[in-house]
């Protein structure tokens, strides 16, 4: 999936609240073993730098959230009225 392109389709004013929701999905997931170390480290660096709601940061969060819990990620997108993005994620 081309996550950077998907993020570009999300209105910038939704990046900040969406990043918080996705962090919630990632930390609340029970599928820890699905998280690749390289992705985890890149995500932590963005969190440390306070750049999770930038294009790069949100791309990482979206990728991690979908990997760990696709259903809840789609739910988070739905809550943000990003239904077309959600449909892309689930491949409709």
């Amino acid at each position: 999936m081309d996550y950077p392109k998907i993020v570009e389709m999300i209105p910038a004013e939704k990046w900040d609240p969406l990043s918080e929701k996705l962090i919630g999905v990632i930390l609340g997931s029970k599928n820890d073993e699905k998280m690749p170390t390289s992705l985890a480290n890149a995500m932590l660096l963005k969190m440390k730098e306070g750049k999770t709601s930038t294009k790069d940061g949100l791309t990482l969060l979206l990728e991690a959230a979908v990997l760990l819990d696709c259903e809840k990620s789609v739910g988070a997108l739905g809550e943000m009225q990003l239904l077309k993005i959600a449909e892309q994620i689930v491949g409709k």
Binding site: L27, D32, A40, N41, L44
Partner: peptide, 11 residues
């Protein structure tokens, strides 16, 4: 929890 979750909570 794995290191990355605790590090995220620490941040």
């Amino acid at each position: 929890d794995p290191y990355w979750k605790l590090a995220a909570y620490a941040i």
